[in-house]
């Protein structure tokens, strides 16, 4: 799932400074689940914005809407009437959702209200951790299903750095597990420790062409 977090208020306020009527648009999928841009956050951000502007004596009118997926043109299109009413759109979707919104309503400036941070999972209530770097060249099968590229602080591809602390903790952050220790333990459990001896050549990130494209088999 895509994880995002709200931008600093100062940035949002500045972005909105020129406008008197805006649409605060949430997305009902990933960013709802990570408490960054669902209907609830839309309500809170809109309210906060109105309060801020009314304290400055420069009232702002906000419309609020949340679509199921802002990365789908068909779903964003439902907002047409609302977008027509406003001067600008403040989108709480991930970067992809913001772009769809911007593309669909080319005449309106669209501002992101969140920073899209990573692909991750919930560790506990209200805490998300990064799991996948979307590198486009997955080798999780050889690391026991643990991605050292993302979960190792140094992103090492070939075993731990040598600074691993006692108890298998990371040199840089003693609260975090050393990803390579996790990999070792997992492979040990599976009787596949021989994989630890393999050397992997540096990843060729050029293999991922920008912008990335994924074409599924024709359905």
């Amino acid at each position: 799932m895509i994880i995002a977090e709200r931008k600093p208020m100062e940035e949002i306020k500045q972005a909105m400074a020129l406008y008197k009527k805006v649409l605060v648009a949430g997305c009902g999928t990933c960013v709802t689940v990570c408490w960054a841009g669902g209907e609830k956050e839309v309500g809170i951000l809109a309210s906060q914005l109105r309060l801020a502007r009314s304290a400055e004596g420069n009232e702002i009118v906000t419309l609020e809407a949340t679509v199921e997926r802002q990365c789908e043109k068909e779903m964003v299109a439902e907002l047409e009437d609302k977008v027509a009413e406003v001067e600008a759109v403040l989108s709480l979707a991930c970067g992809s959702g913001v772009q769809v919104m911007a593309e669909l309503f080319e005449d309106k400036p669209v501002f992101p209200a969140v920073n899209t941070t990573f692909i991750g999972m919930p560790q506990k209530e209200g805490l998300w951790v990064e799991m996948c770097g979307a590198c486009g060249d997955c080798f999780l099968d050889r690391t026991g299903g643990i991605c050292p590229m993302v979960r190792c602080a140094k992103g090492l591809l070939n075993g731990p750095c040598g600074g691993t602390r006692k108890g298998g903790k990371c040199e840089i952050d003693p609260d975090k597990d050393c990803a390579w220790v996790l990999v070792y333990r997992r492979l040990e459990k599976q009787g596949r420790l021989d994989l630890m001896r393999q050397y992997y050549t540096p990843k060729n990130f050029r293999a991922v062409k920008r912008p990335g494209r994924v074409q599924a088999a024709k359905a």
Partner: peptide
């Protein structure tokens, strides 16, 4: 915190 953010 949200209120302090907007200087209220």
């Amino acid at each position: 915190m949200l209120l302090r953010e907007i200087g209220i």
